[in-house]
Each structure stands twice: as structure tokens, then as C-alpha cells.
Design a binder for these strands. Structure first.
Lengths: 156, 156
DNA sequence: CGTAATTGTTAGTATAGCTAACTATATTTC
DNA sequence: GAAATATAGTTAGCTATACTAACAATTACG
């Protein structure tokens, strides 16, 4: 009985109300998951940057800053933290000595995958109260969000 | 064509994969919206606490800390910030002098509602690329998440 | 070649999280 | 009823994450 047909019915989802509730739901989902991530011993900004490195491959500090929607000085400090924890390395670019390429170390990849597994297990443990049909609805909604996000211009 | 019937089909949403994508979608939605909130001049922790005060009514500092899943010293500082900005007030409890009741000021309510309007408009502007049917699916999925969150024990 | 632009880092500030230690009040126990 | 204990907040001090401004180094360009 998810978003079936219904003539126009009790739901009547106007965009603003949905936007508001989506925002709230996103906040609360992340708040719950956050504590799981703390188990890794690294803060959220570092984990997020590390994730970009692991899934996107090595890249310059500037690219990493853009990916994380953060200013270069902020990313510089995040990277310093990762390097101090031996989770990433700074490499010089042979073509352009101004650039600093950042790469996740094997240890960084391991830590990220473990954290990801923990997080997914935790979140999944709560999602599996949902029926198969409900999961289908959730899956469809996430696909929609992914599409909206893809088309969403990243204004600076 | 959201989460209709389909025998078992291309989607095959296993819980772990959905959990992972939900997490990612939540992160990216909030990252986009974050900049809108910055326009208010107050940080996210203050806005969030203020929101609890406005929608939940006056409450003690401890209750507010629990609601925000934050330790009392942290909430104490957040409240100090709100008070300095004239967005909230500390009131003494007549029954128990240890307690400090916190209340949003009219100015605080105004600021919150304006920010909320901005955020909803912004997010809504991107959501309205979706068809009516897709909005129904999103609405249904958010309802599911709200239910899961309600039943989700708040482990400390 | 000398000036511009680009890329990162350093310095300084603010917010937001924590634990530990403290104050002030209530409650319980003897 | 006084002493011990428990509860509610605050203060102090640490860390992480964000920002802008100012700087250094390097590259690109006129």
C-alpha cells in the first residue's frame, strides 16, 4: 500500500511538505549512523574524504576539496590528519610541482571498508523491519533521489 | 513505475545495498541544503536545537541534550550561543532550582521559520522535477523511514 | 623575463563535540 | 535533622572541522 494509485487521497503530498520531511528524515538517519562511524576512531570529515579517495581513486587536494564541498585549507588539514593516521599519503605530481596528489593507503582502504560494513549492517538491521514491498518503495524513492541529486548543479 | 508489482525484477533490493545508498543519499541531500541554512548566520547545531524548542516547546537543558543526542556540556554551550543571539532564554524552574528551562524567543521563532521556508523552497525547487507519481513514491518512502526512526531505540 | 594565475599551506577565529571536575540543589538514609 | 548520595548544569580544557586572510611556490603568459 505504498504509493499505489489512490484518486488523490489522504496523502496529498505537496512538494514543500515532502521537502521538509525529507530533510528531517535525512538528519535523523545520519544522526543514528554517526555513532557507528565513531567506532573507527576517525572523525566524519576524514572518513568522508577517505571514502572519496577509496572510491574515486587518487586525486589532488583541490579536487578532493571540491568533491567534499570544502575550502582548500580545510581539506589540507583533513588530509594532514589522514596522513598522520597512516590512512593516506601525499604524493608529488611529476607534471606540476604545485599539485599534491592524495592517495589512500591499504590501511586506509581497510579501515574504510570495515566502517562501511559496520554502518550498513547497523542501518540494515533497522531497515529489515520493513516488508519486501516496503523495501521496494524505499528502493524506488532512493533511485529518484539519486536522479535528482545527479541533475542538481553543485553551486559553490 | 515506482515500486509497483514486478515479480522480482531488476531492482532486487537487498537490505544492505539499500542501507548503503540511503546513507549516501542522505549525506548528499544534507550537503546541498547546508549552505541555505548558513544564510541564517547561525551554525547547524544551534538551528537544530532551536527547531526542537520551537516545535517541542520549552524544556530543560537536559531534555534538549537528549533530544539532540548530545552531552549536557555541549548543549549548555549551544544554548549560551542562542541566548547571546537573543534567540532563546534561560528560565529558572520554580519547582526545582537545579533545572534550567530553555525557551525560544519570538525572534528565535521568526529566524527558524524563515530559514525553514528558505530551505524548503530550495529543496522543493529541485524535487519538483519529479512527476506527481514519483512524489507519491517519495512521500511513501519517507513515511516508512519516519516509522523506522520512531521505533529505533535511541541507544546511548 | 617579469607579471598573472594557480595550488597548497599557515595563521588565526569560531563552532561543536567530548571528558573531567566543579557548584548548587534535591533526595535518601541513618 | 544531618550526612551522604544523586541529579542538573556549568566551567575548563582538548580535539576536530569549518571559515577567511595572508603567504609561498610554481606555472603560464604577454
Amino acid at each position: 500500500m505504498a504509493g499505489r494509485k489512490q484518486k488523490n487521497p489522504p496523502s496529498l503530498p505537496d512538494v514543500a511538505a515532502i521537502a521538509d520531511r525529507l530533510h528531517s528524515a535525512a538528519i535523523h538517519v545520519l544522526r543514528r549512523v554517526r555513532k557507528q562511524d565513531a567506532a573507527s576512531g576517525e572523525g566524519p570529515a576524514r572518513l568522508s574524504a577517505l571514502s572519496v579517495l577509496v572510491f574515486g581513486g587518487p586525486m589532488t587536494l583541490g579536487q578532493l576539496a571540491v568533491a567534499e564541498q570544502v575550502k582548500p585549507p580545510t581539506m589540507s588539514r583533513i588530509v594532514t590528519g589522514l596522513v598522520n593516521s597512516r590512512l593516506a599519503q601525499r604524493l608529488t605530481d611529476s607534471k606540476d610541482a604545485r599539485r599534491v596528489r592524495i592517495r589512500a593507503t591499504p590501511s586506509g582502504e581497510r579501515l574504510l571498508h570495515e566502517g562501511r560494513r559496520r554502518r550498513i549492517e547497523y542501518l540494515g538491521r533497522h531497515l529489515d523491519r520493513l516488508t519486501r514491498q516496503e523495501l521496494d518503495t524505499l528502493d524506488a524513492a532512493i533511485k529518484l533521489l539519486e536522479r535528482v541529486l545527479r541533475e542538481w548543479p553543485v553551486e559553490k
